[in-house]
């Protein structure tokens, strides 16, 4: 039997909102250590890696490893039926055809059950090598979302240049161009408002806006986002999910023809 309970469904609602633009279906790998998802978008340009540790759940039981193929659109619809304060329980039996979502209101007077059919999926698992990145930038997630949205008006791609002076985002298009520079924070009153740059070597990479704008749907999950970059390798855009896990987005850079 598999059973995982969160005291508040808000986290799971936000996770679904953070992946639904990129993924139509995904396999949820459930084991004793928690729930893991690794899936590429339809165009195989980006990769989503989600990790929810079992010790972050209020209750977690997984008697045997399960691979459950889920339709992300349906799952999003179901999670939208939960209030943020509802308790959510995921339940499946061994060799399941279905997964059950159970929402219980705070006053325990409303109990909702949604059963979703699982799908058989051919899954490709990609091996992500351990990488030491040339630049690792931590910045406010809302600021990153704002920059991606603003610069998307000027072009289809954003160039991110990171040096010890700061991080510069540039977009160029037919109507003009724009750039935004952020300096490393000298003194941040609040940790979550800080811009922190850990640079070994300067990096300049270009990424498609449409994927970055999908990644920033994870903004409600965490006040800070971590961007890890090295020359000619995919960007890692990471959001912590409370003390339960993280979501990482990998995006292949655009390269010169």
């Amino acid at each position: 039997m598999f059973e995982a309970r969160l005291a508040q469904s808000a986290i799971l609602k936000k996770v679904l909102e953070a992946v639904k633009d990129l993924l139509t279906e995904a396999t949820f790998e459930c084991s004793d250590s928690g729930i893991q998802v690794q899936a590429m978008d339809n165009a195989h340009v980006s990769l989503v890696s989600l990790n929810l540790r079992s010790d972050g759940f209020d209750k977690y039981r997984c008697d045997r490893n399960l691979s459950m193929g889920m339709n992300i659109g349906t799952m999003t619809k179901i999670l939208r039926c939960a209030s943020s304060e509802d308790t959510v329980t995921l339940r499946a039996w061994d060799n399941p055809d279905n997964i059950i979502f159970i929402f219980e209101s705070q006053n325990k007077e409303k109990l909702s059950e949604y059963e979703m059919k699982l799908i058989n999926m051919d899954q490709e698992h990609l091996g992500i090598p351990e990488t030491v990145y040339s630049c690792v930038v931590k910045m406010p997630s809302q600021e990153f979302a704002r920059i991606c949205k603003d610069l998307s008006q000027f072009g289809e791609a954003i160039t991110i240049a990171c040096s010890k002076e700061g991080i510069k985002f540039t977009a160029a298009g037919d109507y003009g161009n724009a750039n935004i520079k952020l300096a490393q924070t000298a003194e941040a009153d609040k940790e979550e408002e800080a811009v922190i740059i850990d640079m070994q070597e300067p990096v300049k990479l270009t990424f498609a806006c449409r994927y970055l704008n999908s990644f920033v749907k994870a903004t409600p999950l965490c006040a800070q986002v971590k961007l890890s970059m090295s020359g000619d390798v995919p960007l890692v855009c990471e959001y912590q999910i409370g003390d339960i896990g993280h979501i990482r987005y990998y995006l292949a850079p655009k390269i010169d023809d």
Partner: peptide, 14 residues
């Protein structure tokens, strides 16, 4: 001009 490569050209299918 820049072109887009796929993520699988960086990470091998296991």
């Amino acid at each position: 001009n820049k072109s887009q490569r796929g993520i699988e050209s960086y990470f091998k299918v296991q």
